[in-house]
């Protein structure tokens, strides 16, 4: 009676073997080494060089919309100090959630808003990135040696509701790429 037979040839089905080779590689030990190295590089790069930034909120609209994704260059801010017009990330207790603002004035500047217009050191400063303008009026702020003045590009709500003002240099964690 032929009941059929199962022959063990020692070979895996070709599909499974190909998948295994693609995922694990011919030499699993080397693959693990490469994966660990890649993970290490990612940790170093994304923690100390490029900080991934996922925009939440409308404070920087329309330059950076809610949901936009960018990288903030951490080393760049060490090499070149923050300058007027830079978009930067500002640390709170860490780097998981940070403020995203534009630098409007640098150390030593005297800055204020008059009827929605930015004035720095007594001169009116054009702001082409502001589309949603407002009627902000603030007192004159004289910045200290390590102080910067920051605000979002969206000025449509009263300044008292908007997180803006003076920030210390040590809080600025990186410059956001365009």
């Amino acid at each position: 009676m032929n009941v059929g037979s199962i022959e063990n040839t020692g070979k895996r089905p070709p599909g499974k073997a190909l998948l295994r080779r693609l995922v694990i590689g011919a030499r699993p030990r080397n693959t693990i080494r490469r994966a660990l190295l890649l993970a290490g590089i990612c940790v170093v790069v994304f923690r100390f060089v490029w900080i991934p930034v996922w925009v939440q909120g409308h404070s920087m609209a329309p330059t950076l919309q809610d949901g936009a994704f960018r990288f903030a260059h951490r080393l760049g801010i060490q090499r070149r100090p923050p300058q007027r017009g830079d978009v930067v990330v500002i640390e709170l207790a860490g780097q998981r959630a940070m403020y995203l603002k534009r630098i409007l004035a640098v150390p030593g500047d005297a800055v204020q808003f008059r009827d929605g217009t930015l004035w720095v050191n007594g001169e009116e400063v054009p702001e082409p990135y502001v589309v949603y303008d407002g009627n902000w009026n603030t007192g004159l702020e004289q910045l200290g040696p390590d102080e910067f003045f920051v605000a979002g590009d969206n000025r449509s709500e009263p300044w008292e509701w908007h997180t803006m003002g003076v920030v210390d240099r040590e809080r600025i964690a990186g410059r956001v790429g365009r």
Binding site: I90, E91, K101
Partner: peptide, 8 residues
Amino acid sequence: AIRAPRAV
């Protein structure tokens, strides 16, 4: 972290 400016 960001100190609000003085009011007018």
